[in-house]
């Protein structure tokens, strides 16, 4: 089953002479339960694709079918419950004056989920925090714990699709490993579909099965992780990217 189908997507900012095309004619399909990766340098448009999918960027054209719904200007309430996003910076994405309890319960109230009380405990358990963290404020948590709360918030309305926008780039390597393991476990246990954006090929290669390489708003190549490990890239830019990331780890 195809969970996400994007055809000829264009995204732009500004009008007239100031118009900047951020995404140019991008098409891809993601199956249910698949983890799809997007890599590229900053400014290549990878985050913009995710933002257009969840409706944070109104200026797009093309067709998008996500979780059985063809998207137009307006999206149904069910869509927002079905598709959730985890943002890059856990320090900026939680409200500093809301407790973990309030962050999670607000989402569930908006999506009309019953037994909020039980579910908060369940969610905190799922992301490996435990009920003891329920009434804490973000400043009382470490970076890794905040990202866990952000993931719990995304899981609160019982989504089937998670869009991960560089979920570990603000974290240390040791904490990054914990979060990547958590994401892999959640995907296994709940059968989620992920689209993961990162500029770190090691991270994307660890989780994703299929990876799209972006440059200047276009897909230059879509290849499997096995092909990437064998360094079988056909496009010059992918080769350059592979070379620089292999060089930095070995």
């Amino acid at each position: 089953m195809t969970a996400i189908s994007v055809q000829n997507m264009n995204v732009w900012f500004g009008t007239g002479a100031l118009r900047a095309d951020a995404v140019l004619d991008v098409s891809f399909d993601v199956n249910e339960g698949e983890i799809f990766g997007l890599v590229g340098e900053s400014g290549s448009g990878k985050s913009t694709i995710l933002r257009a999918m969840v409706g944070l960027v109104p200026t797009w054209s093309g067709t998008m079918q996500i979780a059985g719904e063809t998207l137009g200007k307006k999206r149904s309430q069910a869509f927002f419950g079905n598709v959730q996003m985890v943002f890059q910076d856990p320090y900026a994405s939680l409200h500093p004056r809301h407790t973990v309890d309030r962050v999670l319960s607000e989402v569930m109230r908006l999506h009309g989920i019953a037994d909020v009380d039980e579910r908060i405990v369940q969610l905190l358990d799922d992301v490996g925090l435990g009920a003891g963290f329920r009434f804490r404020y973000p400043h009382q948590l470490s970076g890794g714990q905040r990202q866990r709360v952000a993931i719990a918030r995304a899981l609160a309305p019982k989504p089937t699709i998670l869009l991960l926008d560089e979920p570990t780039s603000a974290l240390d390597v040791s904490v990054q490993a914990e979060i990547l393991n958590l994401l892999a476990d959640l995907q296994q246990s709940q059968g989620l579909t992920y689209i993961m954006v990162s500029h770190d090929l090691g991270v994307v290669g660890h989780l994703c099965k299929r990876i799209a390489v972006m440059k200047d708003g276009e897909f230059v190549e879509v290849l499997s992780v096995e092909a990437m490990r064998r360094l079988e890239a056909s496009h010059a830019y992918t080769k350059h990217l592979l070379a620089s990331s292999i060089q930095s780890v070995s």
């Binding site: 390597v173 040791s174 990054q176 490993a177 914990e178 990547l180 393991n181 892999a184 770190d200 090929l201 090691g202 991270v203 290669g205 660890h206 992780v225 990437m228 490990r229 592979l242 990331s245 292999i246 780890v249 070995s250």
Partner: peptide, 16 residues
Amino acid sequence: NSVPNLEHPRDRLDVL
């Protein structure tokens, strides 16, 4: 060991 490596994939990353 906690760094994901493209060339040497592992199912789970070691956690400190």
